[in-house]
Design a protein around this nucleic acid. Structure first.
Lengths: 201, 201
DNA sequence: CAGCAGTTTTGCGGAGTCTGCAATTTTTCG
DNA sequence: CGAAAAATTGCAGACTCCGCAAAACTGCTG
């Protein structure tokens, strides 16, 4: 699959990646309001007009890397042993996507702050996460023999996993982290698997 | 609570509501691309500049009614008996918000089609649903004695309920409805309460 | 390797969004 | 009423986004 990537395709992908990377980097480093299409295009060495051939808005470019991330994670889900419970696969893949190094954390925090400070970016991030969720649902449907056009199940699983992940990240980033992100995610997954019982005590 | 609504406040609210209603109506009736700020402002009898005192984008106005809906549902949750299990409260409130009449269904479908056809509107709808989720989490935290700044629980409950709801609506709207929306939502809630077990078909 | 067909890049023009600012009008309240 | 506070409006300006058509580039074929 994804065979036959000619030079042409590769160049297009490279241009797109360069634009996305430039947009994201500029947004984090200089603040979203200072990121004009002109600046992004200049950083990626193309004309402003070309930018709009790849992305339909500044915000879309800023959050585009989320889609790549979704792609990678979906691939990983598909590569998990077929007899592994889907829930275990998801937890493993999500946790595996986290980098515990200090710099990774710093980068993550900067990223989150940048997004949270700008409603238009939040909206686009949610949209990107939503297409990610849809891909997940497809992969899960294949794995569990369900049908995304008929069953709630694959959508609920994908959504619940995404919910546990996003909720954990948000809580983790919102204050002095009392617990590690790994712990929070495991906890979130556990609560959902238990049917979200009324909290003891 | 929400006491002391002077004339001023009421007029502001009315203007906002008029703008939101006009934006949404025009979007559904004439297609999003034909809805200019000028047209919305004209329909609400204010100047285009005033529109931007209330909403920071066209899309925000189009989906603004979701926020009102969130407000109403949150109030209803708070009014449920304090000893009712939170999950029962949520199911009751969500199902109670549905209108089963034929016209309501038609309106809902038109609305959904309008949104799905326009990525920028999708993004803003998701953002609106996200602020709705946050309000829910607050109300749930109060009801269950948890802390939104410390516990995953209220966020997970609010998110899971929203997920069951949105997933049901999306599935219901995506094809010939084999099951009623009420049924789908009840099913979604039940699956989540059961911890989303692998489907034994 | 010349040439061609398909694709991508680019510039330009134009409609529209969105914001800051300052003037004007409206509302509230003593 | 008369001042203070708040909301509306017009205007100017920067920027976004898209359609269109010309120019540049790529991969292939004879």
């Amino acid at each position: 699959m994804t065979a036959e990537v000619g030079l042409r395709e590769r160049k297009k992908a490279a241009t797109r990646a360069a634009l996305a990377a430039a947009a994201n980097r500029l947004a984090v480093e200089q603040g979203v309001e200072h990121v004009t299409v002109e600046a992004i295009a200049a950083a990626a060495d193309v004309s402003p007009r070309t930018f709009h051939n790849y992305f339909s808005s500044r915000e879309e470019a800023i959050v585009a890397s989320i889609i790549d991330w979704a792609e990678r994670l979906t691939d990983e889900i598909e590569r998990r042993p077929a007899d592994e419970p889907i829930w275990d696969s998801l937890l493993a893949v999500f946790q595996g996507s986290l980098d515990d190094s200090r710099e990774a954390h710093a980068r993550m925090m900067a990223q989150i702050e940048m997004v949270l400070a700008h409603p238009t970016v939040i909206a686009n991030q949610l949209a990107a996460l939503d297409t990610m969720r849809r891909r997940f649902a497809e992969a899960i449907a294949v794995r569990t023999g369900t049908d995304t056009g008929r069953d709630l199940y694959p959508h609920l699983i994908a959504g619940a996993a995404g919910l546990a992940f996003k909720t954990s990240v948000d809580l983790w980033a919102s204050g002095p982290p009392e617990r590690s992100l790994h712990e929070l995610i495991a906890d979130g997954f556990a609560q959902i698997r238990a049917g979200l019982p009324q909290p003891g005590r």
